[in-house]
Amino acid sequence: MTRGIVPPKIRRIVRTIDGGSRSIGSLVSSAIYYAKKYPKIAQCATPEQIVLETLRCAPPAWTVVRPVLDRNAAPPSLAAYVTEELEEVVISTLLIHHDEKYWQHPDSWLPSRWHQTSPSVSGFMPFGKGTERCFGQSYIFNLAVPLVGRVLPLLDSFCVTEEKAMPDGPLYSVASYELRYCESGS
């Protein structure tokens, strides 16, 4: 093995371990952040809708990497980019989740969109798609929904400090913030 080059199988294992460990904390933290930022919207939504919309706006993993198995199977729109050296394709879930092709008002946090939208919609892939999607998807979702449900009544106990959010618009969900417990009323 050449020094500095990690075999694809090892990269996938590391991404799986790393992704799973950050997903729950990132997801619940982001859900609390959005619910604090948009309390009137959050009050009208179920914990499941809040989790789904948070996964759409701020997926814990912003990209999905897939190996190129058959260069001849590339769709015509990608044919010019497929070369013999190409080993992997990187798909930005964050950009797909903010694409008007798939979503009305893609840059708005609107949990109500999940009243009539199924998580299997083609533009929703926070855990990837197909046979190589995150095997922890059900675990993460089934843990996050009740956690968010238990935290929602306690929103006043959380403070968002040192917020450095980007302005509303494309990719507004990419924000830097600190979420911490605070005394009620402070």
Results as ranks from 00 to 15, higher is better:
64 V>P: 02
65 V>T: 11
66 R>I: 04
66 R>E: 05
67 P>M: 06
67 P>T: 03
68 V>C: 06
69 L>S: 06
69 L>C: 06
71 R>E: 03
71 R>S: 07
72 N>L: 13
72 N>D: 09
73 A>L: 12
73 A>R: 08
76 P>L: 10
76 P>F: 07
77 S>A: 15
77 S>F: 11
78 L>I: 06
79 A>N: 08
79 A>Y: 05
83 T>M: 09
84 E>G: 07
85 E>C: 10
86 L>N: 05
87 E>P: 08
87 E>T: 13
88 E>W: 09
88 E>Q: 15
88 E>C: 04
89 V>H: 05
89 V>K: 06
89 V>R: 06
92 S>M: 09
92 S>R: 12
95 L>I: 15
103 W>I: 00
104 Q>E: 15
104 Q>A: 12
106 P>R: 01
107 D>W: 14
108 S>W: 07
108 S>T: 13
108 S>I: 05
109 W>F: 13
111 P>D: 00
112 S>E: 15
112 S>Y: 11
112 S>D: 12
114 W>H: 00
114 W>F: 04
115 H>I: 14
115 H>E: 10
119 P>S: 08
120 S>T: 15
123 G>I: 06
125 M>C: 07
126 P>Q: 01
127 F>C: 01
129 K>C: 02
129 K>H: 08
131 T>A: 12
131 T>Y: 13
132 E>D: 13
134 C>I: 04
135 F>P: 10
135 F>Q: 11
137 Q>Y: 09
137 Q>M: 13
139 Y>S: 05
141 F>H: 06
141 F>Y: 11
143 L>S: 01
143 L>Q: 03
145 V>N: 01
148 V>H: 00
149 G>V: 09
152 L>Y: 01
154 L>T: 04
154 L>P: 06
157 S>R: 14
157 S>V: 02
158 F>P: 01
160 V>T: 10
163 E>T: 06
165 A>I: 05
170 P>K: 09
171 L>Q: 03
171 L>D: 00
171 L>E: 01
172 Y>C: 10
174 V>A: 07
176 S>L: 13
176 S>A: 09
177 Y>V: 02
